[in-house]
Design a protein around this nucleic acid. Sequence first.
DNA 1: ATCAAAACGTGCGATAATCGCACATTACTA
DNA 2: TAGTAATGTGCGATTATCGCACGTTTTGAT
Lengths: 261, 261
Amino acid sequence: MPPRNDARTDRDFMAGLGKGLSVIECFDEENVLLSVSAVAARARLSRAAARRCLLTLQRLGYAELDGGLYRLTPRVLRLGFAYIASNELPDLLQPRVDQLSGEIHESCSASILDGDEIVYIARAATKRIMTVALGIGARLPATCTSMGRVLLASLDPDEAARRIAAAPRKAFTPRTMTREEDLLRILQQVRQQGYCVTDQELEIGLVSIAVPIQNTAGKTVAALNIGTQSARFAAADLSARFLTKLKAAQKDLRPLIKSPG
Amino acid sequence: MPPRNDARTDRDFMAGLGKGLSVIECFDEENVLLSVSAVAARARLSRAAARRCLLTLQRLGYAELDGGLYRLTPRVLRLGFAYIASNELPDLLQPRVDQLSGEIHESCSASILDGDEIVYIARAATKRIMTVALGIGARLPATCTSMGRVLLASLDPDEAARRIAAAPRKAFTPRTMTREEDLLRILQQVRQQGYCVTDQELEIGLVSIAVPIQNTAGKTVAALNIGTQSARFAAADLSARFLTKLKAAQKDLRPLIKSPG
DNA sequence: ATCAAAACGTGCGATAATCGCACATTACTA
DNA sequence: TAGTAATGTGCGATTATCGCACGTTTTGAT
């Protein structure tokens, strides 16, 4: 489990904690109820270890037994909520996301970058526009989403290139950009124009536009986007239609987001 | 840490996992950045154990070091999201919550019961109506909220009485009901009328109305509410104004929510 | 209905990992 | 500058974790 050997850090690594967390992450949309063996297989643990983790989680109220199978309880939300509550960003962005969505009657979201994925931290949906539901905490690949590209573009170019090189670049649709050089060129363009439009690269029929959200120090800390259906707006029309609103939100939010330290 | 001695279960309890989870829960709105000692104190751990947990969380990407202090990373959302994604309820309720909020231009939420607290699992806010922000995963005492009372009322009366007796009943405002007998009487009333209105019991100026949401088997699995300001609607007017919409949502949702098993 | 295969719970000895004290070091404060 | 407090580190003792192996239960196919 420990990726590297950090001398001291290696001694202080608590294997049990790592295993338990990976057990929690075993559960998802397609795996609501899992058996001990299934968890062991998914988390790459021995059956005994998986069982001990599940028993512990059950004892602590994070999991419950349902006819021989385990399921997570709402108590698990306490963990994710520890982040939401400890980070002011979601609180600051959610009202504005709600407002924007109400004004334009389109889905609106905010996300941050975590490795090569974006993580939704605020969201307001008019109706479900994607086949998959995207609630808070949901993750999408950064390389093929408008918010992800805006966030990647805000990084040091070398760092951005590194993450793109390391990221799996699956072609979700025929339009998905997968070539490294194409992505780097797009990032360059995003840096210049200050926003990003994606045209059905994640799902056919889905278009979106995103802008970076900066803190008082000017550092990009999140991305804000509007997503809609290509049947209603062509990708080329998104900037003319929504960019003013997004830029206004960007400007309003900036003084509210204090830089750390 | 283990509450009881369950013979076998006791042997299979992984102390390290329990400690790590309690460390994560140390972080909240008022404690964004915590030192090793602070975490040790909050989680009731030895400094060494707290340090090992934090080091492990850092290694796994759940925490990061910021000038000698630790902070949670968005990766923690993966844990809470494991629940959201593995439970269909939030997905089913969120669109309807969004829709309802859009129609009536008031804040609308859904929650479930966890012990003596309600946990928000879907939410759409028009503007911030409470001084505290309530995102997904947020918790409030069940006894003094409209959704909490609806959910408590759905339990076996003995069980409800037990939870009320065990719950801390803090008076958030002068109007907060704290007497056990009053609460039991209210629950009785809620069972009869099928909804609950609360009038500034959690925060002055805040009124709300809630109805239970049932699955196909008729079992209450969540509560749906509308919250607004007493300056706009008197508590007595809430049912006349909003009950029809809430009941409609209740009826629409019921066939969508399958009973487990 | 019967049987095989798979999954589950349990016991236990060996091992390795956690534990927390004690010390050295580094901030922070008065 | 001295004193307080918090941090990182080393290490021996302890104990909790590990995973195999066994017996039992459930599943599912014939």
